[in-house]
Design a protein around this nucleic acid. Structure first.
Lengths: 187, 187
DNA sequence: GTATATTCGGAACCGGAATTCCGATTCCTA
DNA sequence: TAGGAATCGGAATTCCGGTTCCGAATATAC
């Protein structure tokens, strides 16, 4: 991530923290529909300060989303611990989606076409992807997921579910339907 | 739709047509990332003219999307004609998605949270929905779709597929997986 | 406690894009 | 084919939010 260089004056470190908190909160609730000034205000700072810590809006958003990916990664690690292959897969899938649900910015980042300058994020994303790959493979090997199920399908499924997280759509219902399409019928 | 009042001066009607064509083209290709001026230019007109025909960007976009819904509706009508219940259902589903694929603006309209002032559109949307309901019901009654399949599920499925139309995601693959979750296993 | 480097704050600045305005132009009717 | 209404064109205006700047305030070193 944006290496929080050692040696930052105490107040600076504290403020950086505030900015991140405020930004996380707002981006999560309103996606990209948030002004730099509002973030600064909510952090109890001036916009200038905010720009001292992050080059521009993009960088700030990227940092926030990178952070969410870190959370996703540890969540994934926890799921992988589970002994039962199916439990691990389902836990990963559901945990990921439930974490994404309340974070509009994250969902937009995943669903949107934004291919540009994701810098940091990519790394985190990759770490997460590695775990997904292992968990999926384990479930397939155990004969619980259709043999032709690929890690990419995990992406298809999750994006699909996330697309139904706005408004009144019931993404859990959608997930259920999707699972019936990929799980191997028992017996 | 925005009732093209009778009695529009010939040139006016012609220009309105140009605007709609240009806007359709551009919105379809670039979603909302299009300027009023660009639309005017491509239509061979000045922005002023454009505003004479549509109150603002919103109205213009709404008109364009409403138009797409009209197309979707006639497409749906055609699908409903098919004798085989499953063929009708599949044709509707696939036809809808294939029409949506090349139209970024339409997809955004469906996927986005934009709840505000859809005015016109809603009507068209409703007409389309009515057909979907009948086609779905017919497939369910024929025992080809799981008994608990509801028209709302059609929305879940299509939104899911549309979410995988950007970048390298393979929405057809996703659709296949989803179909296996809702179709009744033959025999 | 003073000096010096950092950091803060927020008014001012800027660029981009939507929308307005009104004189010039074009259509249509009598 | 003249008159007047309807329409066009596009420069000018407005709005909005990101970004910059630099004097003031604050922290840390000595």
């Amino acid at each position: 991530m944006s290496a929080p260089e050692r040696s930052l004056r105490a107040d600076a470190r504290r403020n950086r923290e505030s900015v991140i908190d405020a930004a996380s909160e707002l981006f999560a609730r309103r996606g990209d529909n948030v002004q730099m000034e509002e973030i600064a205000t909510r952090a109890g700072l001036g916009v200038g300060t905010l720009y001292r810590h992050f080059a521009d809006k993009r960088a700030l958003r990227a940092a926030i989303i990178g952070r969410r990916f870190e959370a996703m990664t540890s969540l994934a690690r926890a799921a992988e611990e589970l002994a039962d292959p199916w439990a691990a897969f389902e836990s990963l899938l559901l945990g990921y989606l439930e974490s994404a649900e309340p974070d509009v910015a994250f969902r937009l980042a995943i669903l949107g076409p934004e291919e540009a300058a994701w810098g940091d994020i990519v790394a985190e994303k990759t770490a997460f992807a590695a775990i997904v790959e292992r968990v999926v493979q384990r479930a397939v090997d155990a004969g619980l997921l259709r043999a032709d199920f690929r890690p990419d399908d995990f992406v298809l499924i999750t994006r699909g579910a996330m697309a139904n997280m706005s408004g009144s759509a019931d993404w859990r219902r959608h997930l259920t339907l999707q699972l019936e399409g990929i799980r191997v019928a028992e017996l």
